[in-house]
Simulated assay, not measured.
Amino acid sequence: MRSYHYTLFAAVITVFVSGCGDKKSETTSSGTDDSSITMDAPPPTTVDVHVHPTEGPHHGSLIELGNEEYHAELVHDEDSVTIYILNGPATEAVPIDAKEVTINLLHDGTPEQFKLAASADAADPSGKSSRFSLSDAELVGHIDDESAAPKLMVTINGTPYRGELAHDHDHAGHDH
């Protein structure tokens, strides 16, 4: 019985040692041996080349909705605020069946809510809108205030989305 264990042990060692030889190259898929190809390390990690848009088609700041499933674009002047609903890459309008979208914010620590009514764009189909507007000097006054922590609330195809409004003051060609 002892000789059986020694034989088994010797067989395992032989298989282990023969499988651990120095491999200088691997055979390529064409069946030729190319010594410049080695497979000693894992393949390099891929780089995320996903481009994040920085400005909307109306030159407004973007609001991410979901995991970039959609974007909203914030455009405002001294008298009014407009929100455009856009696709994930923020390149095209997405008309939705909502009658309004909501901006929630804090003013001196007190929550306030502003409803922006649907204001269909010329290209929007009947009963849907990709544009929502409100003329309200109070909202305009708070929209860029970081302490107001403004958030957009919108429902798209039955799914509620919330996005933070972070306005960039460093872009050129934009009036406040």
Rank of each mutant, 00 (worst) to 15 (best):
H52E: 06
P53K: 10
P53F: 04
T54M: 03
H58A: 14
H58R: 08
H58Y: 05
H59A: 15
G60V: 06
G60C: 04
L62K: 09
I63H: 12
E64V: 10
L65M: 07
G66H: 06
G66I: 10
E68A: 13
E68P: 06
E69N: 10
Y70F: 01
Y70H: 10
Y70M: 05
V75L: 09
H76C: 15
D79H: 02
Y84H: 04
I85V: 14
L86I: 03
L86N: 02
L86V: 04
A90T: 03
A90D: 11
T91Y: 13
T91P: 12
E92K: 01
A93N: 12
V94P: 12
I96W: 03
D97R: 09
D97S: 14
A98I: 00
A98H: 05
K99T: 05
K99F: 10
E100R: 15
E100F: 01
E100T: 06
V101C: 14
T102W: 00
T102L: 13
I103E: 01
L105T: 07
L105S: 11
H107E: 05
D108S: 14
G109M: 03
Q113R: 06
A117V: 10
A118T: 00
D121A: 13
D124F: 03
S126Y: 04
S126E: 13
K128I: 05
S133C: 12
L134G: 11
L134T: 03
V140W: 00
D144Q: 02
E146M: 06
E146S: 15
E146K: 08
S147R: 00
S147D: 04
S147P: 03
S147G: 01
S147Q: 02
A148S: 12
A148C: 04
A149E: 15
L152H: 11
I156M: 02
N157V: 10
N157L: 11
G158S: 13
G158I: 05
T159V: 12
Y161T: 12
L165F: 03
D168N: 12
H169L: 15
H169C: 14
H169E: 12
A172P: 08
